[in-house]
């Protein structure tokens, strides 16, 4: 849409167009402000240079009217820009349910990508056009930040929680992604390529990877391995919250607070269950903090997510 602009980066997502409308508007407003200041300055400097014949009579001495005038004018203009920007931000950072959820772990210095079907890649990401892609991030060490310039999306990946980003790509092609939060020696090499493909090419790509176990299936075996199924499984006799239909809903906690069961919540509950005891259940679950790596956590979360879909179909 703005590809005719010189020195402009490629735009390849719905977000790119929405964000760029505002960027262009602000570039125009900024240029006008700078040109106004520059124009006034040059005009005054030429006209009122020392020794010029221009009249200096009737110097403005009462100034507050003018000052209040431009204070109010700038304030109104600023509030309009603020509102426009805030609106876009809330849309960018409130992820809708994804058609495809992809899990990405950042670590010094690579991005490890896991697709729901179990396909894995490093410093590369393959996605189809026209689908809402939801990325779920975790960091294994320091703060990283995931940025796809062509999609105009970015989010820091802070250790100790899960972060999400979403996008809808519309132009097939190969685009750069990079880490934008300084993370040590090889920060500058923590980059990769996102390949946007048509849906049919994407299907081919997925099958070419050799389909093994899906992420949720891998999570299910971990679910047994770590002993989770003993309490949360269907045949358990222990009084533990059922995980069917949990993901995406609201959970009432013992301390009276209510949380949405998103990735960050599930992660917190696995690692620090005593802090997030569900109302009506005894705090008996052991603490898994430091016991489960980021990769396995994501598989477990993918499994719990799959239970949400399953129970929905039972109803």
């Amino acid at each position: 849409m703005y590809q005719w602009l010189p020195f402009w980066p490629p735009i390849s997502s719905k977000q790119g167009i929405v964000v760029d409308d505002l960027v262009i508007a602000e570039v125009v407003v900024s240029t006008l402000i700078v040109l106004t200041v520059f124009g006034m300055m040059v005009t005054f400097c030429v006209r009122y240079r020392r020794g010029s014949q221009a009249s200096r009579a009737h110097l403005m001495r009462k100034t507050w009217r003018i000052e209040i005038g431009w204070t109010v004018a700038t304030l109104i203009a600023f509030l309009a820009l603020f509102a426009w920007g805030a609106d876009i931000y809330a849309w960018l950072f409130r992820s809708p349910p994804g058609d495809i959820e992809i899990y990405i772990v950042g670590k010094q210095w690579m991005w490890k990508v896991q697709h729901p079907g179990g396909q894995r890649e490093i410093n590369a990401l393959h996605v189809p056009t026209g689908k809402t892609i939801r990325l779920v991030f975790a960091s294994q060490d320091v703060v990283h930040s995931f940025f796809i310039p062509a999609f105009r999306i970015k989010h820091d990946v802070v250790p100790g929680t899960n972060e999400t980003l979403w996008f809808k790509a519309d132009q097939p092609g190969v685009y750069r992604f990079e880490c934008t939060q300084y993370c040590g020696d090889q920060h500058a090499t923590m980059t990769g390529e996102v390949t946007v493909m048509t849906p049919s090419d994407y299907e081919h790509w997925l099958t070419d990877q050799g389909v093994g176990q899906s992420l949720a299936e891998q999570g299910e075996s971990l679910f047994r391995q770590y002993g989770c199924s003993g309490c949360h499984g269907p045949n358990s006799t222990v009084h533990a919250p059922s995980l069917n239909g949990l993901y995406g809903g609201l959970v009432h906690l013992q301390d009276g607070s209510v949380r949405r069961a998103d990735e960050a919540y599930l992660r917190d509950c696995i690692l620090e269950p005593r802090t997030f005891t569900v109302a009506g259940y005894p705090p008996v679950m052991p603490n898994f903090s430091g016991q489960i790596g980021e990769d396995d956590l994501m598989k477990l979360i993918a499994y719990i997510q799959s239970l949400a879909h399953r129970s929905a179909s039972w109803r």
């Binding site: 964000v19 505002l22 960027v23 900024s30 520059f38 603020f82 920007g85 931000y89 310039p149 970015k154």
Partner: peptide, 27 residues
């Protein structure tokens, strides 16, 4: 000073705008 401050100032406004800050942050 006035000119450079103005240019720095208007680009500061762009960074203050939430939707615009997302792509240019940390660049």
């Amino acid at each position: 000073f006035v000119l450079l401050f103005t240019i720095g100032g208007v680009t500061g406004l762009m960074l203050a705008t939430l939707g615009v800050d997302v792509p240019v942050h940390d660049t």
